[in-house]
Design a binder for these strands. Structure first.
Lengths: 153, 153
DNA sequence: CACTCATTGAAAGAACTCCCTCATAAAAAT
DNA sequence: ATTTTTATGAGGGAGTTCTTTCAATGAGTG
């Protein structure tokens, strides 16, 4: 960990678990003075170690019954095609994440949809129309054994 | 969306973007009274629509240079093997997410590691030793085109 | 030792937030 | 139309939090 000591690690660890934790409580948990804790926290935010705070939502309670991982293979790799591809992905709200990966396929997308109909429509109308895509392979999540966005600090 | 009106949607949308937003500010942004806003927020939390709050961290700044998606195929599906499998996954901090999926493989894991050495060690010492695993296919992220944990409310 | 540099701790006022109470208004139901 | 239910607004007190200032401690260096 680049330049982070034990105390910093505990701070980010703690804030990852409870983003609403006040500096006051955080300080007392770490047996640190309010001031020292506050400055560390601010530094971690300024340095970008802590990027932001967010509320986590229950996707099912919001009506997103489907979560899928899609592997895309491309056959065109020129600049323009790539750029159009990336722009579409960026704008598409259903796409939560998109990674350029090693392996058979070129991209792996994490996608949410209301239901299978909605998902199917998304694949047909968005993914199949993406420029340069030659293969699409869907892996729909049947069950989330584990799902967190917390790094093992 | 099950029982959420337009205002609720805006609340979760807003809190997803900024988990530290105070009720006071949220209310004034939505042109709502503090009281009404507060009660809605509490309700959303109680109903579990908002599950929790967290600080998001920059994985690279914490030294996690590798993020990979691993597909596992299993050949044993009896209760005991499954349970041991799930327990291991649950405890393993490197594994950020694990989904039982449709498609060729049975599981898709999202894994972080310090570097490729660390990742390789993880695959050999943890994944290969998992009970009933017959195939492992790694897809390492070369680039994150998009990475969010925000639902398109 | 004297010096710097970095980090910490205590204190305190201003600012802000939470959360409750009471009253009002709109909507739904009987 | 009357009652019941549900959501809203205004106000305000109690409590908490932020953020600054000033002093102290300790580590490392010449």
């Amino acid at each position: 960990m680049s330049g982070l000591d034990r105390v910093d690690a505990k701070i980010v660890q703690r804030m990852q678990k409870d983003g609403k934790l006040s500096n006051t409580k955080l300080a007392s948990e770490l047996a640190l003075s309010e001031t020292a804790c506050w400055r560390r926290l601010k530094r971690l935010e300024e340095e970008g170690v802590i990027t932001d705070y967010q509320a986590n939502l229950d996707r099912r309670k919001l009506g997103f019954g489907v979560m899928a991982f899609v592997q895309l293979t491309c056959n065109q790799h020129d600049a323009e095609t790539t750029e159009r591809f990336e722009r579409t992905i960026e704008q598409c709200e259903n796409v939560m994440a998109c990674h350029n990966t090693t392996g058979e396929a070129d991209f792996l997308l994490q996608v949410v949809a209301i239901d299978l109909d909605d998902y199917s429509r998304f694949v047909d109308q968005v993914l199949r129309k993406l420029p340069g895509v030659s293969a699409i392979s869907s892996n729909i999540s049947l069950r989330e054994l584990k799902s967190s966005t917390r790094l093992p600090v």
